[in-house]
C-alpha cells in the first residue's frame, strides 16, 4: 500500500513572542496570546527562504527514509511564498538532494494546503507505478501585514514527505478532498502581504471546508471519530483546530499532540503536515491518524493514516519536530522587522 517512506521537517531558529508583537501595536499581548492559542511564532533568518527550508526538510526526509535520491521520480513543493514568481523551487530542492535529472517536478500553490495536494499527486504517481518514490513538500515563510491580525501567527517552516510503497513508516489508507470557490484569503500579484475577509475566514471557509472534508473521508472509509487515535487539523491559530474538533466530536486529548501552532505559529503549507510529523515522531505502531489540511480559496485534503512498525527503526536518525521547537532564540520586533524586510528604507 502507498505510504510515507520517510519524512523530515525544518523550523528556523528564531522566534518572536505574541506579547512582543502586541507591545509594538499597543495591544494586550497576554490576552491575545491566550485568545489565539499562539504564544510565539518561528521567524526565518535573513538568509532563509522556502528553498532553503525545503532543502533542509528534504535532506532530513531522505536520511530518515534511507532512500537513494536516484529512486525519487517526482518533486513537488507546495508554498505560497516561493522565492521566485517564475522559476521553480522544486528544481533547487532536487539538485540539492542529488536527485536524478529524469524526474518530473513542479511547484504547487493552494494557500495552506499546497503541500498536501503534492502528497496526493505523489500518491497517484506511486500507485499507478509511474514513479517509485515521490517527494512532497509543504513549506512557507509566511508574511502578515505589520499590525494585522495575521502578523501574530504567520510563521516559517517546512515538512517533506517521501511517498512510496516499500517499507512505509505509515500507510495512507485513503484521502478525500473538498473544494469550493471561497475568497477568504488572497494575495494579488506583486503585493507584499495577503488580504483576508476577517471573520469570513471562519465559518464559511475554514470550518465548512475542514468539516466537510473530514465528513467525506469518514463516509468514504465507513469509519467514525472513535476509530482514530490522533487528529490533526490545519492550524491557522490554536483556537480553530480545537473548535473544529469540538464540532466533529473529537476528544481534546486526541488533538492535543498535534498543536505545534502554540510554539511556532502557522507554518502555512507546512502547518497540518508539521502536526502530522509530530504525531509520527511519537505515535506507537498501529495508531491511526486522521489529518485534514485547509487551504484558503478554498479547499481541504483529508487523510487516513496508519503508523507502521517501521517507524520505530527510523527514530533517532534526524531531528524531530520537538528538537527543532526546542532549538530557539527569541528576538525583538525590531530584529524581526529587519529580518523580514519590513524596513523598506534598507
Amino acid at each position: 500500500m502507498v505510504g510515507i517512506v520517510g519524512y523530515g521537517v525544518y523550523i528556523p531558529r528564531y522566534r518572536i513572542k505574541t506579547e512582543e508583537i502586541a507591545r509594538v501595536w499597543g495591544e494586550d499581548g497576554v490576552r491575545l496570546a491566550k485568545g489565539l492559542g499562539v504564544f510565539e511564532k518561528s521567524v526565518p533568518g535573513p538568509d532563509e527562504d522556502v528553498a532553503t527550508i525545503s532543502v533542509e526538510a528534504a535532506r532530513n526526509a531522505v536520511k530518515h527514509g534511507n532512500i537513494d535520491p536516484l529512486d525519487i521520480g517526482a518533486v513537488y513543493v507546495g508554498s505560497e511564498s516561493h522565492p521566485y514568481a517564475v522559476k521553480p523551487t522544486g528544481t533547487i530542492v532536487a539538485e540539492a538532494i542529488e536527485c536524478s535529472t529524469d524526474i518530473t517536478c513542479a511547484d504547487y500553490e493552494f494557500a495552506c494546503k499546497a503541500g498536501t495536494a503534492a502528497m496526493q499527486t505523489c500518491m497517484g504517481l506511486v500507485k499507478s507505478d509511474m514513479i517509485k518514490v515521490g517527494l512532497a513538500i509543504g513549506s512557507d515563510t509566511a508574511q502578515g501585514r505589520p499590525g494585522d491580525a495575521l502578523e501574530y501567527s504567520a510563521a516559517a517552516g517546512g515538512v517533506a514527505f517521501l511517498i512510496g510503497k516499500e517499507n512505509p513508516v505509515a500507510t495512507i489508507e485513503a484521502t478525500a478532498s473538498f473544494t469550493t470557490d471561497t475568497p477568504d484569503f488572497w494575495r494579488r500579484e506583486g503585493e507584499d502581504y495577503p488580504s483576508h475577509g476577517a471573520r469570513f475566514t471562519g465559518e464559511p471557509a475554514y470550518f465548512r471546508h475542514v468539516g466537510e472534508g473530514a465528513k467525506l473521508l469518514l463516509r468514504n472509509t465507513k469509519t467514525s471519530v472513535d476509530d482514530y487515535d490522533y487528529f490533526v487539523f490545519h492550524m491557522p491559530n490554536g483556537k480553530f483546530p480545537l473548535a473544529m474538533g469540538m464540532q466533529l466530536g473529537v476528544p481534546g486529548e486526541k488533538l492535543e499532540d498535534s498543536l505545534v501552532v502554540r510554539q511556532i505559529g502557522n507554518t502555512y503549507s507546512g502547518s497540518a503536515m508539521m502536526g502530522l510529523a509530530r504525531i509520527l515522531d511519537i505515535a506507537d505502531p498501529g495508531s491511526r491518524i486522521f489529518m485534514v489540511s485547509y487551504g484558503s480559496g478554498a479547499g481541504s485534503d483529508a487523510f487516513s493514516i496508519v503508523v507502521e512498525e517501521e517507524v520505530l527503526k527510523r527514530r533517532g536518525e534526524v531531528p524531530t519536530v520537538d528538537d527543532y521547537i526546542a532549538r530557539k532564540t527569541n528576538i525583538e520586533y525590531s530584529i524581526y522587522a529587519k529580518f523580514r524586510r519590513k524596513i523598506k528604507a534598507m
Partner: peptide, 14 residues
C-alpha cells in the same frame, strides 16, 4: 544558494 555551517543539532533518540 549554497553551503553555510551550523552547530550540530541534538537529535532525540540518536
Amino acid at each position: 544558494y549554497g553551503y553555510k555551517f551550523e552547530p550540530v543539532l541534538k537529535v532525540t533518540g540518536h
